[in-house]
């Protein structure tokens, strides 16, 4: 657990980067600090490993004041990932990853063996082990950066815009892999980004910072979208927050109609295994592509998206084997959301 207790940072030129911040980052969770530039999110992050010293207040990790430890010792116990990865250009990939174990005096052979293991864990082929950072793509370098932060198995990790410098497709991949990794590892993570979509996707908790280093709201992403604390937060999370909020409801909550129900005179034809092929009208020929499917584990947002894309306005639900087991019209989704809203349950 990382606790900020009335933390203040005023720079020598008089600007206040962080203003009496009280913030608790719970164990085993990803807390995303998000906000416009100059809101003090990066300063706050960098105060955790004493890259910046606060001018007032206390920061504690698991109850211990961080100033009670030697800074270098403290930092070796905290994983750190930055934008552009910050890899050492003169060291091979495996030695980059093993840097912290080397610093801690771990046996070289053992540290390298662990580094190779981590390469696989973050989705890098071990054939890259003897290469240099310049020989890797941006996305691959960022994976090395994550592996390096994990090498000494620190309980706490700081991530400063780790996925901002890669293109959107790679970023999506890295985010998904990172979330999978975190499910296994359960690290206590402070994650800084300026991108609210990333914050909502990645965060267990999202802390929205406003200009002047003020914490505007900290909440789980769905709460943030449904009940922004003030106009600043509402504006920052964006105007389509209602739609985005649907990401947090599982599609299994939607009522489905049977797969053989005719829609606008069309029926869903399926192959022998029950997988959907497309919509057909009376003559039996495939007329209309069903255009995507959703599963019960997907979100209502995904289901609605499929329904909107479908020319008939119907989303096909499939089970884990890809067999169609129900259809949902977008009117049904609209009714579902209206009723839920009136009942006051859920979010969005």
């Amino acid at each position: 657990m990382i606790e900020f207790d009335q933390v203040v940072k005023t720079f020598p030129d008089g600007t206040t980067a962080v203003d009496h911040l009280d913030l608790t980052l719970p164990d085993g969770k990803i807390t995303v600090m998000v906000g416009p530039s100059g809101c003090g999110k990066t300063t706050s992050l960098r105060m955790i490993n004493r890259m910046i010293d606060p001018t007032g207040g206390t920061i504690r990790i698991d109850g211990d004041d961080i100033t009670s430890k030697d800074p270098a010792e403290l930092r070796r116990g905290i994983g750190y990932v930055i934008q552009q990865a910050g890899l050492f250009p003169h060291r091979t990939i495996v030695d980059n990853i093993a840097t912290v174990p080397f610093l801690l005096g771990t046996d070289r052979k053992q540290a390298r063996a662990k580094a190779l293991e981590l390469m696989e864990r973050v989705g890098l082929s071990t054939s890259f082990a003897k290469r240099y950072p310049v020989q890797l793509s941006g996305g691959q370098q960022q994976r090395v950066g994550v592996a390096r932060a994990l090498a000494a198995d620190p309980p706490v990790m700081l991530m400063d815009e780790p996925f901002s410098a890669v293109d959107p497709v790679v970023r999506d991949q890295l985010q998904a892999e990172f979330l999978r990794l975190q499910q296994d590892l359960g690290k206590t993570i402070a994650f800084v980004t300026h991108d609210i979509d990333e914050a909502i996707k990645i965060g267990d908790l999202v802390a929205v910072f406003a200009e002047g280093g003020r914490l505007a709201q900290i909440a789980p992403p769905e709460t943030l979208l449904a009940e922004p604390a003030d106009d600043f937060v509402a504006g920052f999370v964006g105007h389509d927050r209602g739609f985005r909020g649907l990401s947090f409801t599982q599609a299994s909550a939607l009522p489905v109609e049977p797969v053989d129900r005719a829609v606008d005179g069309a029926t869903l034809s399926r192959d022998d295994a029950g997988r959907p092929l497309g919509w057909t009208r009376g003559d039996g020929e495939t007329l209309i592509d069903h255009d995507g499917t959703f599963g019960p584990d997907n979100s209502v947002r995904a289901a609605l998206d499929v329904a909107i894309r479908s020319p008939l306005g119907v989303a096909v639900r499939v089970d884990e084997h890809g067999r169609a087991d129900g259809v949902v019209r977008h009117e049904t989704i609209a009714t579902f959301l209206r009723e839920r809203h009136q009942a006051g349950g859920g979010s969005a």
């Binding site: 750190y80 930055i82 910050g86 003169h90 610093l103």
Partner: peptide
């Protein structure tokens, strides 16, 4: 500077950072 900062942030002390990060990169 992002490399020297990364080195500090993962636990290098000043002299060791100079010898094993900055000087080799300056070679």
């Amino acid at each position: 500077p992002t490399i020297t900062q990364a080195a500090t942030a993962i636990g290098y002390r000043r002299i060791r950072r100079l010898v094993s990060v900055e000087l080799p990169i300056a070679l």
